[in-house]
Design a protein around this nucleic acid. Structure first.
Lengths: 121, 121
DNA sequence: TTGCAACTACGAAATCCTTCGTATAAATTA
DNA sequence: TAATTTATACGAAGGATTTCGTAGTTGCAA
C-alpha cells in the first residue's frame, strides 16, 4: 500500500507517542512546531485513514484515531527504503554513517562491532 | 539547498556508482529497473544540475554529469531526516530496527554492542 | 555541404501533497 | 428551543514531481 508522506509522518509520530488521539490533540501538538489550521490536520488524518495508515472509532461527535499498523512495521518499511535508495543496501555503511564514521567497510557486522568498541572507549 | 526527490535519488545512486556519467548511461541503468524515456532522465538531470545536486561538463555534443556534493553528505542528510521524522531521534532504535531486533533500548551504545555480540554468535 | 543520428532545451500534462475555506451536523448551554 | 461551540465532510487552489512530446542544435560521415 501507500507510504506516509512527510506531513503524514509528522502526524503518525504524534499518534505513536500518544497511543491514540483526537484530531484536536494532534493539531495542538503539531502547532507546537509549526502553525497549521485545524482542517488541514483533519483532512490529512482523513486521508491517512483512507490510505490505511490510521484506524478510527467514534467517540461522541468526534473520532479517536490510532495507528493501523505497528509502529515498527512502518519504521522498518521507511528504513528499508532509505537503505536501498540511498545506501545501496549496505547496512553497515548506513550504521557507520549514522554513528558518525565515514569509513566504508565490507566486513559488515564485525566492522560495526569494532566501530562500536572504539566509540565506547 | 534542496533535497533529492525519489526519482532524483535513483539517478544519484547510479552516478555515485559510476563516478560520472552521460545521460545515456544513466538512462540505460535506470531502464534495467523500470522503463523510462530518455528525455525524462535528461529533464530530471537538468533539474538536478539547477538544484545543485549535480555538476556537469561539456564533452563533444553531450554533457558529463557528476555529483555536486559528497555522497556521504547527501546520505547523512537523508539519514538524519529519517532519524528524526520516523525514529524520534533515537539512533539506537534505528540501528536495532535495521539489524532485525524489535526491542526498544534506552542504554544506547551498550545495548547496540550487546545486540551485535548476540547476533554474531 | 548535406543529411543523419545523437543530444539538448523547453513546455506542458498528469498526479500527488499540502493547505485551507465553506458548508453541515451534532452536542451543549443559556 | 434557539444560539453557540465543536466536529466532520468536501472541494478546490497552489506548488512540487514526474513524465514525455516536440523542436532545435551539433558533430560527423558520405
Amino acid at each position: 500500500m501507500n507510504n506516509p508522506t512527510p506531513a503524514e509522518l509528522d502526524i503518525l509520530r504524534i499518534i505513536w507517542s500518544l497511543g491514540e488521539a483526537k484530531v484536536q490533540a494532534v493539531n495542538d501538538e503539531l502547532c507546537k512546531t509549526k502553525p497549521v489550521g485545524y482542517t488541514t490536520t483533519l483532512k490529512t488524518m482523513q486521508i491517512m485513514e483512507q490510505k490505511g495508515l490510521l484506524g478510527r472509532k467514534k467517540d461522541g461527535k468526534s473520532h479517536i484515531y490510532f495507528p493501523a499498523a505497528e509502529q515498527q512495521d512502518t519504521q522498518t518499511t521507511l528504513l528499508n527504503r532509505l537503505l536501498h535508495s540511498a545506501f545501496g543496501g549496505s547496512k553497515s555503511r548506513l550504521v557507520m554513517q549514522l554513528l558518525g564514521n565515514e569509513k566504508i567497510s565490507t566486513e559488515e557486522l564485525n566492522d560495526i562491532k569494532d566501530f562500536l568498541t572504539k566509540l565506547e572507549k
